[in-house]
Design a protein around this nucleic acid. Structure first.
Lengths: 154, 154
DNA sequence: CGAAAATCGTGGGTGGGCCCAACGGTATGC
DNA sequence: GCATACCGTTGGGCCCACCCACGATTTTCG
């Protein structure tokens, strides 16, 4: 069987292409890891955000993680149906719902985080510990420049 | 005006998240740069691939750059209409078209490549020359592990 | 040598992510 | 008290990336 042509060398050398490939791979690994626990990636993301910021309004949540408010409704419906979050009216502002994680939600995340961490290990497997630190530090600076309003982690 | 909450710290520390942000930024920069010359990003990608491999079959092209054959038809229609590629029946295999770049196509790429290079400079602006080399080398290794059948550039 | 399988180019279709707008209800600011 | 803004929800829509099917052609296999 004849081999498949690779993408052109010019393209394969572009950092934006490399970042795209790496990002797609990373996303795939995370999606796969979470599928093992039966949860879509965005649901996980939202649950993490609820745990960190809860109780929190839906609109606030949607802005924090960059999800369309309409799509956030569906995700919260699903998380609520599974007993992982609660949705209660905000006592101080009746326009808002106060979204909070339940103990079941926190347990679910406790189970999932090692899966995601393992996916990250897999993603950076070709790099030594020192190289990973270097890579992540440089990547963080690139991202910080792109998104100056978001604090970085260090 | 109250500040917007950032994505959760746990998420912002994940290499897959960072890669996703950096990749989106890179894509945005390239798209913007090429829009300056009035060409969508995938059209540019395909034209580069045609220049490198032409004359080449559509299906081969689609596999090389990871574009759906159906979408490749539309892209080639547009490039052909603009006089940037030719589409002729393969004399040895009537199933196939032989796609080749025209001199106008090559000139168009010659104009666009500095734009894309400038976008890459912009993307990696926070890094020194040494850091860029380190970052790209590490990124290349991560991508090589994800896609072992594709040769890397070095 | 003929039938089956595979490939090619093209068209139809779908789902997810994102955009915009509208609505009724509520809160804020002047 | 009124205008403006925000909230949550819903609806409509677009675009992109992907899936599948079809007729024509080539390749493979018994």
């Amino acid at each position: 069987m004849v081999d498949k042509l690779p993408a052109p060398a010019r393209i394969r050398a572009l950092p934006s292409w490399l970042l795209g490939r790496a990002a797609a791979h990373g996303r795939g690994l995370v999606r796969e890891a979470l599928a093992g626990d039966g949860m879509p990636m965005l649901h996980h993301l939202v649950l993490i955000a609820v745990r960190e910021y809860g109780p929190v309004a839906q609109a606030e949540l949607a802005r924090a993680v960059g999800i369309d408010p309409k799509d956030m409704v569906a995700i919260l419906n699903s998380l609520q149906a599974d007993g992982l979050v609660t949705r209660t009216p905000d006592p101080h502002d009746r326009r808002k719902n106060a979204i909070a994680a339940t103990p079941a939600g926190e347990r679910r995340l406790a189970r999932q985080e090692p899966l995601v961490d393992a996916a990250m290990d897999d993603l950076l497997a070709p790099l030594s510990a020192t190289e990973r630190a270097t890579f992540t530090a440089l990547l963080t600076r690139v991202v910080a420049a792109a998104d100056p309003d978001t604090p970085t982690v260090s």
